[in-house]
Amino acid sequence: MKITDDVFKNALSHFPSGVTVITYSHLGKHSGLTVSSFSSLSLHPPLILFCLQKNITSHDPIRSAGKFVVNILARGQDSISNQFASGKTDKHALIQELKCKTGELDIPILPGILSHIECEVEQFVDGGDHSIVIGKVISAGAEDSLRPLLYYRRDYYSI
């Protein structure tokens, strides 16, 4: 089948993934966005990566801030994922409303999540209409009793 945007998106939707929210602070305001294109990269040194659309408002602030937190969402956090994915949500107000704690990098960590990974930006790599953001892991934590939120064929699931 010829590759079109719709064919490509549909094929990718058949790959189940975890759901993350990347939080960051820029110019005194907290913000975040939902990301499913997240992966570990290296154990030594500890590196992770995620892909970030170049034309969204979070792109340059994350690059400028130089640090971020990967919040791996737990089962039942569909609403949080949707709110951070929406262009209509005031992310700073949402983070305040959620009463987030902060970690070693003074970046918001969402409540009730499966795990968090605090990172400093190591590198931005060109990837077409996205940047591949490589983060050096500074700190991490997990809640072993929770189950993950999964995204598959444009809907949420859990194990």
Rank of each mutant, 00 (worst) to 15 (best):
N10R: 14
Y24M: 00
A11N: 09
T20E: 08
F50N: 05
L41T: 05
L27S: 14
S39W: 03
P46L: 05
S31K: 04
A11Q: 05
G32Q: 07
G28R: 05
L43A: 12
L41A: 12
K9C: 10
S13A: 13
T34A: 09
C51G: 13
F38Y: 13
K54S: 10
S17K: 00
K29T: 10
G18Q: 03
L52K: 11
V35D: 04
S36Q: 14
L49Q: 13
S25D: 07
L33T: 10
S37Y: 06
T34E: 03
P16Q: 06
S40W: 05
S37K: 04
T20L: 00
A11T: 15
V19L: 03
I48E: 02
I22G: 08
K54R: 15
V21G: 02
A11G: 11
S17A: 11
S25A: 06
F38K: 04
L47R: 13
S31G: 15
L43N: 10
H26N: 11
L43S: 13
S31A: 15
K9M: 12
H14S: 12
H44T: 15
I22E: 01
S40H: 03
T23V: 06
V19M: 00
S25Q: 13
G18S: 10
K54E: 12
S17H: 02
K29M: 11
G28L: 02
G32K: 03
Y24D: 02
H26T: 00
L27K: 15
G18A: 12
K9N: 13
L41S: 04
S37D: 07
L43D: 11
S39V: 03
I48W: 04
L12A: 09
K9D: 09
I48H: 02
P46F: 09
I22N: 01
K29A: 09
L27I: 01
F38P: 02
S39L: 11
T23Y: 03
G28E: 06
P45E: 08
L49H: 07
P46D: 09
P46A: 15
Q53K: 15
S17V: 10
S25G: 06
P46Y: 11
F15V: 13
S39P: 08
S36M: 10
L47D: 08
S40A: 14
G28K: 03
S37I: 05
C51N: 14
S39C: 13
G32E: 09
L52D: 07
F50A: 09
